[in-house]
């Protein structure tokens, strides 16, 4: 769900790589060839990908929590089934992404430990609370919409397993986005109370959604390297602009107002001018100061700790089975 490098304050360390291998690698990537797990790759490329893919996987898993918050309160049977299936899809995305990261030589348990210890990051967006049913609509429409914008180019990212995972994920995300918008449409054309709920959700989710594309280009140190390696294919600001240009008319179409007084169509650019994102808030949330960051981490830690005995039992049982099978042979 989130593909912007959050932990890359400093540039990847320079490791002395074999210049001939490096040149061949760079040429393959420049020719839009896919790099596969057994192919040679520079250490920095491997590290950057592990960080990005695991961060993306963690975002899917933590992202189950804000929406999961409304499954038991969904307003009718159809909405309940759709939401449950959607949150289940997010879990499935986490699963394929962890598997893609594992091809780079890291285990799922190591990645999970990194998440739970706070070492690994996940999308800042999930550190905001879901307060009303309309938040489920806003998340599908805006958050999944922003995720799709980030992820569609990644179907052509240079690392094969990641690119293939993205193809499948993008299909599901586009369904999620439509269901979110449909919830918003219904609310916006409903009772006064429902309309209020919808506008309030847009007011709260708009700016955090714009932050999902990551810091502005001039503050994004790894963008250049990542673009050269085709790990990233558009800059943060390009994607953010595209998101604004698509989302504003969608809000207008259902009679909702985007909470940005500076928002204005720019005829010359053929795009919307929009107000400044509060980057101070963004960096605070990245640091773990989001409104519900503690609740999210606590929920993940609790699930992991409470489940330890189950995972242990499954492991021990599998060993017993294997031993019994061996003895029988």
């Amino acid at each position: 769900m989130y593909t912007t490098d959050l932990s890359g304050k400093k540039k990847a360390e320079a490791v002395a790589e074999d210049p001939a291998k490096l040149a061949a690698f760079e040429a393959r990537v420049a020719a839009d060839d896919f790099i596969e797990p057994k192919d040679w790759m520079p250490e920095a490329y491997r590290k950057t990908l592990i960080r990005q893919i695991s961060q993306h996987a963690h975002s899917e898993i933590v992202g189950m929590l804000p929406e999961g918050n409304w499954i038991t309160r969904a307003p009718n049977l159809r909405r309940k089934a759709i939401l449950l299936a959607k949150v289940q899809d997010e879990g499935g995305h986490g699963l394929y992404l962890y598997a893609a990261a594992e091809t780079l030589g890291v285990t799922r348990d190591e990645m999970t430990e990194a998440l739970l210890s706070g070492k690994a990051k996940y999308s800042t967006i999930f550190n905001y609370p879901t307060l009303t049913w309309a938040d489920i609509g806003a998340i599908g429409w805006l958050v999944d919409g922003a995720a799709i914008m980030n992820q569609v180019p990644l179907q052509r990212t240079s690392y094969g397993p990641y690119a293939r995972a993205m193809v499948r994920i993008c299909k599901e995300e586009s369904f999620h986005q439509r269901q979110g918008y449909e919830i918003m449409m219904r609310l916006a054309s409903g009772t006064a109370a429902q309309k209020r709920m919808a506008q309030d959700a847009l007011d709260r989710w708009w700016w955090p959604s714009l932050m999902m594309f990551g810091p502005p280009d001039d503050k994004s140190p790894n963008t250049e390297q990542s673009m050269r390696w085709r790990i990233k294919r558009d800059t943060n600001d390009e994607l953010r602009q595209k998101f604004v240009d698509i989302s504003v008319p969608q809000a207008e179409a259902i009679g909702l107002k985007v909470p940005d007084p500076a928002l204005k169509w720019n005829e010359t650019r053929g795009a919307y001018d929009f107000g400044a994102v509060d980057w101070e808030e963004f960096y605070s949330v990245v640091k773990g100061e989001g409104p519900v960051a503690k609740e999210r981490m606590q929920a993940r830690q609790k699930a992991w700790e409470d489940g330890a005995w189950v995972r242990e039992a499954a492991r021990v049982h599998a060993e017993k089975r294997a031993a019994a099978k061996l003895a029988a042979e």
Binding site: G68, V87, G91, D306, V310, R311
Partner: peptide
């Protein structure tokens, strides 16, 4: 949902 002992 979101709280089980393992993703699977």
């Amino acid at each position: 949902c979101g709280h089980a002992p393992a993703l699977e």
